[in-house]
Amino acid sequence: MKALRHLKRALWIIAFLFVAGNMIRFSVVPESFGQYGDFRGAHLAEERARDPIHRGSDICGECHDERLEEKNNGAHGPIPCENCHFQPYAGDENHPEAHPEVSQSPDRSQRACLTCHQFFPSRPSAFPQLANFPEHIATNALKLNKDHVGAHTLCVHCHNPHDPKIDLKQNG
């Protein structure tokens, strides 16, 4: 069939493009693709490789063992050191080289404590929380130390964050 010559040629070209295209396509599939399923298997190892940043309280205990013990025995026992000692908003330059992100002087403001202990209707009622901060100061702090009464009174003036049960020695 001479009349079909151009059509045949066109079909050959299409067949060639199809085969060549697919050969290229399969040749550039990443090597580990399909190792564990329909994805690049090497990515699992890449994802695992990253170093953890939160390393837990035990590392802190290697140097600050009394502090850690004090915390662990108190009501704040379940809270890891990092919750307060990691600067929540930015890095801190005060801590030794090993943990530049850890701060020795954490946020001591009222906000830091009230983040957990301010009363909200949404908070579980069994959780210790303050419904009225000025009143709390007026009724409790007043009894302890008259110097610290007022808007500038910090929670940490009366409560040791590592062991928050009232300790008069902290008042100095």
Binding site: E47, R48, P52, G56, P80, C116, F127
Partner: peptide, 21 residues
Amino acid sequence: TWCYHRITKGLLPACVTVCPT
């Protein structure tokens, strides 16, 4: 990622570690 780089090393995800309650 459920902190895949942590859980595959025997640690908990960061959010679980720090949860106080």
